[in-house]
Simulated assay, not measured.
Amino acid sequence: MTFMEPQLAIGVHRQEADVHGVPASALVAETAQPRAVIVALHGGATTSAYFDHPGHPRLSLLRTAAAAGFTVVALDRPGYGSSAGHEERMRTPEQRTDFAFAAMNAFLADRDGGLGVFLWAHSAGCELAVRMAGDPRAAGLLGVELAGMGRTHHPRSLAAMEEWRRDPARTRPNLRRALWDPPHAYPPDVYGGRGIGAPSPSYEGSRDGWQEEFARLAARVRVPVHITLAEYEQVWANGPEGLADLASMFTGSPRVVPHEQAGAGHNTSVSRTALAYHLHVLAFVEECALGVRALPAEQGRHDG
């Protein structure tokens, strides 16, 4: 039996929970006696389906992680899924963080948590993940994966945003291309967000003061951090400089691992190389579950 065969039989279920009178939803793939639980946070203009694209089980984080022994709870972020239409309860970052913690606790309340919780986030979901990872309520968190995020925008997305300010109706396709190009990085029926798109809540899109706030939030994170930028990333500055810039922000983390995902576009978890990406980060999750930390430089030299 190959690794991929059991994936197809793994069940993924949509579940709901009440969070102080607001419905929360998630996609869940559960395994008996899990190594750990992965809580996944999707990006903008999609839902938790980003981590389990219909018709593409090979690209699914939920199925791949469950096959490797991890339970996955892919939350619909505040204002998405069942909580869409409740934006009045989620206007501030603090309200959204509170909602996410309460939703996570509700979905994990009656589940075996294994060795702990690992946060896995993409794009706009990374803001919420960084807020959660640096919060005292995240004590005991195993680690965090941040994919498709940054402090400085890629030149192509900067140009597209400037065009959009001048003529929103005419230049919106340029913004879309920055999010989804190049086409060859995705299956044809996935490119452009087919099958996983959703309206963005009204609070999303504003990034005023993000560089300063991100530096403040990142410094609070005290757990291992894995950072992924795609080879063809066109929303945020990528390559070695982009990765190094992000890694330098996590001054309180005991271990920071930057990674460029070959063959992927911005949306790494639905790119053609999604399986390779997921397996790469799952190895990091396993290391976090085992309590692996970076060796001191002097010890590393002697061991070599």
Rank of each mutant, 00 (worst) to 15 (best):
P296V: 04
R255G: 05
L275N: 01
L246N: 13
H266I: 05
A289T: 04
S253M: 07
C288M: 08
P258Y: 05
P296C: 03
W210C: 13
G209L: 10
E233S: 13
P254E: 02
D245V: 14
A247C: 12
D245R: 15
G263P: 13
E241W: 08
A294F: 04
P254I: 06
A247F: 08
E204D: 15
R272V: 04
F214Y: 15
G252Y: 05
V285D: 08
T228R: 06
Y232G: 11
Y203C: 10
A219L: 01
A247R: 13
E233R: 14
V256G: 03
S271N: 07
A274T: 03
H226L: 07
R207A: 13
V225E: 02
P258Q: 02
H259I: 06
E241T: 15
V225L: 01
P258N: 01
F250G: 07
A219Y: 00
M249I: 10
H226N: 03
L243C: 02
E286D: 12
V285N: 11
L275Q: 09
G291Q: 05
H266V: 07
E286W: 11
H226A: 09
Y277E: 11
P240R: 11
G239D: 01
T251V: 12
G239A: 00
P258I: 06
A297Q: 09
S202C: 07
L295N: 08
V223I: 09
G263H: 01
R293C: 03
S206R: 14
E213Q: 12
G205T: 05
A294V: 09
R255C: 13
T251H: 00
T228D: 11
H280Y: 00
E231C: 07
G265T: 06
V225P: 10
G239P: 02
A283F: 13
F250W: 11
F250Y: 14
V225Y: 03
E241V: 15
V292H: 02
Y232R: 09
A297L: 12
V270C: 09
G265R: 10
N238K: 09
A283N: 15
R272N: 06
G239H: 00
H266Y: 06
A247N: 10
V223T: 08
V270M: 06
R272I: 11
Y277L: 12
H280C: 01
V257F: 15
A237M: 13
I227R: 02
A244L: 08
A276T: 14
A289C: 05
G242Y: 13
S248M: 08
W210S: 11
L246T: 11
G205S: 03
A215R: 11
H266T: 04
R272F: 03
R220M: 06
Y277N: 14
A218V: 08
G263W: 08
V225N: 02
A218N: 04
S269F: 14
E212S: 06
E212H: 07
P296N: 00
Y232M: 11
G291E: 00
V292F: 01
F284M: 14
E287P: 00
V292P: 00
R255E: 03
